[in-house]
Amino acid sequence: MSSQTPKQALFAEFAAVARALGHAHRLELLEQLAQGERSVEVLAQKSGLSIANASQHLQHMRRAGLVTSKRDGKFVYYRLADDAVLDLLAALGRLAERNVAEVERIMRRYFNDRDGLEPVPREELLERMRARSVTVLDVRPEDEFALGHLPNALNIPLKAMEARLNELDPSREVVAYCRGRFCVLSFEAAALLRSRGFKARCLEDGLPEWRAAGLPVVAGVS
């Protein structure tokens, strides 16, 4: 009986990682974990899964080295294994966007039509934050904001935007951000703000990429 060569053994392990990514629910769970450490119960609620189903998906990804877990009393908490998981997800998105016709169609129909303005690069936003020439708007839910956010960001979840427009200075440009490049919240927020007369654009990606780039992040709610 023939044995695997070292290369074949490595490829088999790489394939196991790829299989662990091969479910839309798992990608959604990873997007949630990119915001910060979460319990199984919170992840299930955020992704619309049962606790048992979410736990099963998370265990598959833990065995593949994509996430780690710890137990605290009755609760199990998960987090991304490291920032390389973000790199992997970003590469997957870029590849699909360039080479899968349906992905390109969705991007053009929704994201590009919804927001035809050039997104704001991270370094540009950082400079403008230091110059205090922009309002940074975090449109994620409050619990995600508390896990980590850009310095001096104002947290107005998308669902509360209409009722809280008076908290925004109409003379300053607003740059909205959310969970990542494919998160719809910031696109919806920027479109809503522009329809109300504000100058608004989106950050080029989201909080996880900002953190992974080594840019400043603060936790808690002021």
Results as ranks from 00 to 15, higher is better:
Ser2Thr: 15
Pro6Leu: 06
Glu13Ile: 12
Ala15Ser: 14
Ala16Cys: 00
Ala18Ile: 15
Arg19Cys: 01
Leu21Cys: 01
Gly22Gln: 14
Gly22Asp: 15
His23Leu: 01
Leu27Ile: 09
Leu27Lys: 04
Leu27Asn: 02
Glu28Asn: 13
Leu29Phe: 07
Leu43Tyr: 09
Ala44Tyr: 09
Ile51Cys: 01
Ile51Gln: 09
Asn53Pro: 00
Ser55Cys: 05
Arg62Ile: 01
Arg62Cys: 00
Arg63Met: 11
Thr68Pro: 00
Lys70Met: 09
Asp72His: 13
Lys74Val: 14
Lys74Gly: 07
Phe75Pro: 00
Phe75Arg: 15
Val76Leu: 14
Tyr78Lys: 09
Asp83Val: 10
Asp83Leu: 02
Ala84Asp: 12
Val85Cys: 01
Val85Asp: 07
Leu86Pro: 09
Arg94Thr: 03
Glu102Arg: 11
Val103Asp: 12
Tyr110Ala: 03
Leu117Ile: 10
Glu118Met: 10
Pro119Lys: 08
Val120Asn: 03
Pro121Lys: 02
Pro121Thr: 01
Arg122Asp: 08
Arg122Asn: 05
Leu125Pro: 00
Glu127Ile: 05
Thr135Ala: 03
Leu137Glu: 00
Arg140Ile: 03
Asp143Phe: 09
Glu144Tyr: 08
Ala146Lys: 12
Leu150Ile: 11
Pro151Met: 10
Leu158Trp: 08
Leu158Gly: 05
Met161Gly: 04
Leu165Gly: 03
Pro170Cys: 02
Pro170Ile: 01
Ser171His: 11
Ser171Glu: 14
Arg172Cys: 00
Glu173Gly: 01
Val174Pro: 08
Arg181Gln: 09
Ser186Ile: 03
Glu188Met: 09
Ala189Trp: 08
Ala189Arg: 04
Leu193Val: 03
Ser195Asp: 14
Phe198Thr: 06
Lys199Thr: 14
Ala200Val: 04
Cys202Phe: 04
Leu203Met: 13
Glu204Asp: 06
Asp205Tyr: 07
Leu207Ala: 05
Trp210Glu: 09
Trp210Asp: 11
Gly214Pro: 05
Leu215Lys: 01
Gly220Lys: 04
Ser222Asp: 14
